[in-house]
């Protein structure tokens, strides 16, 4: 099965509001299957995250979705049109922000934007106005006339993103846009993505930073070894882990008696005790915290510190794959 062309999509695909539909995508390099049956959809205004470690298949998936390489199997439709390396109609709806900086160092910021804007069909006053808007959005209006080789890393990253959204694409693909970026620029980039999403732009965001996926994405697909392990909202994914919190108590006194007492507290699933520290697994940690501290005190343990760890996407990834996200 190849990537569907426009005719295929027009004849066989049902009417859809989906901005992106990926179905059964496969890419092989010799014996290695880099992407293995990836499927998902993105709705208008939705920010969809592909979360996975380096080498999980995110960029290869993105490359097929953006029409950079042909899929060995599966289909990609963007705004209802089949996508592939030679499908120009679908590409008009797409804005790509590659992982590597994709700007010309010997052109100015404005020249970079103008060049890519013209290739996207913008010209004249539309191009000038849109270029200025994007320059202001990415905070480079005052440096627009400088050669980009003189930009800082963060400025280059912002320009890299600005080029992708210059023509107001239906779908903006951001492939690890914050890699190697300082915290200030990273925050600026994340704010820009949030703003675009609030304006109704569909965003496909790949990252191996759990915090970014949690902050930005309406839905997240966890990808590892070329295939999607789980997909859903953050809460849906966390429920896959059982939805339990961890509470660590530190103190002095009779911790053995305290452990026995705490096993009887409602909501507490499991207690491990070791000297002056107790580790508890509980449902909804904040709501049972007061009862746990009181119970420990009543059993003769003087609590000096409490630490609650709520489950996150790292936990989900660990739960699903048996390895850490940054392995």
């Amino acid at each position: 099965m190849g990537v569907a062309g426009p005719t295929d999509a027009g004849q066989s695909a049902p009417p859809t509001t989906e901005v992106l539909r990926v179905h059964g995508l496969v890419k092989r390099y010799g014996e290695l299957t880099a992407v293995d049956g990836v499927s998902f959809t993105i709705q208008p205004g939705e920010t969809f995250g592909l979360l996975g470690p380096n080498g999980a298949g995110k960029t290869t998936t993105i490359s097929m979705i953006a029409g950079l390489i042909a899929a060995d199997a599966g289909t990609v439709t963007v705004a209802g049109m089949g996508m592939g390396p030679s499908e120009t109609a679908a590409k008009r709806h797409l804005g790509l922000v590659p992982q590597e900086l994709a700007i010309y160092p010997d052109l100015t910021g404005r020249e970079n934007l103008n060049f890519f804007g013209r290739l996207q069909g913008l010209n004249g006053k539309d191009l000038s106005r849109r270029t200025q808007e994007v320059l202001e959005l990415i905070g480079l209006a005052d440096r627009a006339g400088d050669l980009t080789k003189n930009y800082s890393g963060g400025m280059k990253r912002r320009l890299n993103i600005g080029i992708g959204l210059l023509h107001r694409p239906t779908l903006l693909i951001l492939d690890e846009p914050t890699v190697g970026v300082d915290p200030q620029s990273r925050n600026s980039i994340l704010e820009a993505v949030e703003a675009l999403s609030s304006e109704g732009m569909a965003v496909l965001y790949t990252t191996h930073y759990m915090e970014e996926a949690e902050r930005l994405c309406d839905r997240i697909a966890i990808i590892d070894e070329g295939s999607i392990q789980a997909e859903g909202t953050r809460d849906q994914l966390i429920k896959l882990t059982g939805g339990v919190d961890r509470i660590n108590l530190h103190g002095s006194g009779n911790s053995t008696a305290a452990a026995a007492a705490l096993r009887l507290v409602p909501g507490v699933q499991h207690v491990d005790g070791d000297g002056s520290a107790l580790a508890l697994t509980v449902h909804d940690g904040p709501s049972v915290l007061a009862g746990i501290v009181t119970g420990a005190a009543n059993a003769g343990m003087s609590v000096t510190s409490v630490e609650i760890t709520r489950p996150d996407l790292e936990s989900v990834f660990l739960h699903l794959t048996g390895k850490a996200l940054r392995d």
Binding site: G67, L96, A102, L119
Partner: peptide
Amino acid sequence: EQGTLARLKSMPLGH
């Protein structure tokens, strides 16, 4: 090498 080829290939350019 500077990554712009990938961006160009993602754009609606003629063959």
